[in-house]
């Protein structure tokens, strides 16, 4: 019996895992098409038009092109590590997706410490980037890797602090529980004493930095470091880095939607369902594109000062505020 079988957590995880990964990959591929179209509109161009209707098959053409490219490993590179880094980036980006609840059923693994898992996986993405920077044996890649480690470690802290706000409010580290709490009590982003929206902003900025997106893309800063850690990579290995960057951004958008925008819960009592979660995720994803094609890039030291002087203290205050809020509500209830 398929329905009976699905109740087994292993089967459930395997089936939904495959489905979620496939859907995410597909969305990622076509988000690249969408981003190029959007960037084109923004820059008074038309974007891709030649492959398929409206250039819709452009991602396939890109992938085929990347697969055809010669695979070059620099003679002085550390071959094993050099080859290890690109698949690792994709692995860690996809690992995060396991605990994201797209609806009460559509979730690969409903961990009790889902938030912790997301943050841990996000933190691990620093490693393949640093491995790539070191193993390439290229000065630009090394500088990029160095910047990436500094940035990843620094921005992990405001990210954790911002994610702690919904955790504190909901009293659970399971993302599904946090969404259920929001279904009952309203979205975290609109929570009364105001930490909700600020916490979301910190989360958004920190996750932009984690995903190496403009204005925080200093590890790959094309104009300074040529391509940063990916300088020496060719063909599909480069493509994997590219894919991981988009996957990471998409998943971060999904986590943001679940933690701060009520996940599958619809607004104004419009019911709930998978479509709300997907819609919110894509909207946030779109926001990231918008930021990318509008802003210039920070300098490495300015990035650090933004993190340590503003985001971390603000995050600490917000966590405290939300703790007081929970305490106050518990007091009024009984």
């Amino acid at each position: 019996m398929p329905t009976e079988l699905l109740k087994n957590p292993y089967v459930h995880g395997a089936v939904y895992g495959v489905v979620i990964v496939t859907v995410l990959m597909t969305i990622t591929a076509w988000s690249i098409w969408f981003e190029r179209k959007f960037a084109g509109r923004m820059q008074s161009r038309v974007g891709p038009t030649l492959v398929g209707p409206f250039g819709l098959l452009q991602p396939l053409a890109d992938a085929v092109k990347l697969l055809q490219k010669e695979d070059i490993v620099p003679a002085s590179a550390d071959r094993a590590l050099f080859n290890l880094a690109p698949p690792l980036t994709v692995l860690f980006a996809l690992g995060t997706a396991a605990v994201i609840p797209f609806s009460p059923e559509v979730i690969a693994a409903d961990l009790d410490v889902g938030v912790l898992w997301v943050l841990a996986m996000g933190g691990l993405t620093v490693f393949p980037v640093w491995i790539a920077g070191w193993a390439s044996n290229n000065k630009y890649a090394l500088l990029g890797g160095m910047r990436s480690v500094a940035q990843g470690i620094s921005y992990e802290i405001p990210l954790v602090l911002a994610a702690l706000v919904p955790v504190t409010l909901a009293g659970s580290m399971s993302i599904s529980d946090i969404v259920r709490y929001q279904e009952k009590n309203g979205w975290v982003v609109g929570m009364p004493p105001g930490p909700g929206i600020l916490a979301f902003l910190i989360f958004f900025l920190a996750s932009l930095a984690e995903a190496n997106r403009i204005p925080f893309d200093i590890p790959e800063a094309e104009s300074e470091l040529i391509a940063g850690v990916t300088t020496e990579y060719t063909g599909m290995k480069f493509g994997l880095f590219y894919l991981a960057e988009y996957l990471h951004t998409l998943i971060v958008a999904a986590v943001g939607a679940a933690l701060f925008f009520g996940g599958w819960a619809g607004p104004f009592g419009l019911g709930s369902g998978l479509h709300w979660m997907v819609g919110k995720t894509l909207l946030l994803f779109f926001g990231v594109f918008w930021v990318r094609w509008t802003f210039l890039r920070f300098r490495a030291d300015q990035l650090m000062s933004l993190c340590w002087k503003y985001l971390v203290p603000a995050g600490l205050v917000l966590v405290m505020l939300s703790a007081f809020w929970v305490h106050y509500k518990a007091g009024t209830r009984g």
Partner: peptide
């Protein structure tokens, strides 16, 4: 100059293409 500041794949290229227009 905007390309130098903002990268070929970001806000910088938006300014760049507007200037070229």
């Amino acid at each position: 100059f905007a390309l130098d500041l903002g990268g070929a794949l970001g806000g910088g290229s938006t300014v760049f293409l507007h200037c070229f227009r």
